[in-house]
Amino acid sequence: MAEDIKADKKINIKGLVCPYTFVKAKLAVEDMEVGQVLEILLDYEEALRSIPKSMEDHGQKVLKVEKINDTDWILVIRKEKE
């Protein structure tokens, strides 16, 4: 669980589906400073592909995509630009 990267902010978006998974993640990133790290807990598998792709399209860095149990994943994003 991202022990090696300290998250500045964590959000839990379990239960949400697209596009709200990305909406929540994007709003969280907007509120952070460049260089800060966001950890996202989610259970909607499609978002594991769509959130990283959209984050990279928006210029952010995906540090980690990790399955943590049967239903949940963690995504770790570093804010690279405003």
């Binding site: 709200y20 909406v23 994007k26 907007e30 509120d31 399209d57 928006h58």
Partner: peptide, 17 residues
């Protein structure tokens, strides 16, 4: 509001701000 404006918030040129 998150639902209503989701297609705006997703746009890099709009976003939450």
């Amino acid at each position: 509001q998150l639902q209503r404006y989701s297609r705006h918030i997703i746009l890099p040129e709009v976003g939450g701000k």
